[in-house]
Amino acid sequence: MLRISLALAALLVIAVAPFVVTDPYFQQVMVIFGIYAIFAVALDILFGFLGVHSFGHAAFFGGGAYVCGILMETYGVSFGLALVAATLFSAVLGFLIAIPALRMRGIYFAITTLFCAEVVRLVVTNVPDVTRGVMGLTTPMPSFPGVPYGYETAVFYYITFAILVLACLLLERFRVSPLGRSFIAIRENEQLAASVGVPVFRIKFYAFGVSGGLAGLAGAIYAPFIGIISPDLLSPTYSAMGMLMVVVGGFGTIYGAIFGAFMFSVVTEFFRAAAELRMIIFSGILIVAIIFMPRGVLTPLVEYLRRPSGKDKAGLVTRDEAA
């Protein structure tokens, strides 16, 4: 009941936020929050659900942004079609990177994902005829029929959060499904999962594609919203940012990834007055959060809310009680 109430409250907040926060700058911050949240949720599929530590997710985010930008700017493709194409591109890129990466273990896996992302960044940097290289690619603001001038940010806001809500609903449903439990089984003990018949490689392979596609979708919204993208979008900085969002919020929980994105997009704005010191202060907060709340800032709170009530506990016997 509490979960449903919280979900409905969140939906209500999402629905009315653009009417309450009318400042255009802060509306843009909310859209960036939504885009980062989709990116973080995409990474959480691999990192949190499967325990696969991809260090190259910027390739999917940036790849999606570039495909969307090129299609819209160079070929005049509509925003909707460009979103679909960018998602498919990043999903295929995910499958391609998964093939070599999943044959590696531990640090070699991490290096392979990082290396693959660097290859994508170098390709984007070195084909200026298509991507404009380090000059950056301008991406036109899409036209939304019937939307008056000046309200594009609100449209981006609702598109972004509709995708985020849909992704979260699907993932939550997936998380409690038998297939979702196989993901958790792989995360907990890969060899044991394999020994009971869980197709470990196949699941990881598909997860890479889905995660890459969703990250690419986030990038595809980002490109026309920001208006200009550069190869920096494919740098390890963005991959690290995604991982930090997931870790700080609490991996494998979905809500943790969203909270991490909130920290990176909205909370950093509170320190804007500190100018150059902003990121130093924020980094300090992250370090403290990771040291004292290694399972994520929100996880202890959520576990407290989810603790069994007296009624729920009646039918169960814990180890201590049994002894």
Partner: peptide, 13 residues
Amino acid sequence: LEVGYARKFGIRF
């Protein structure tokens, strides 16, 4: 137990 039944699953459990 569901995971133990894993080899039986496809898209639909």
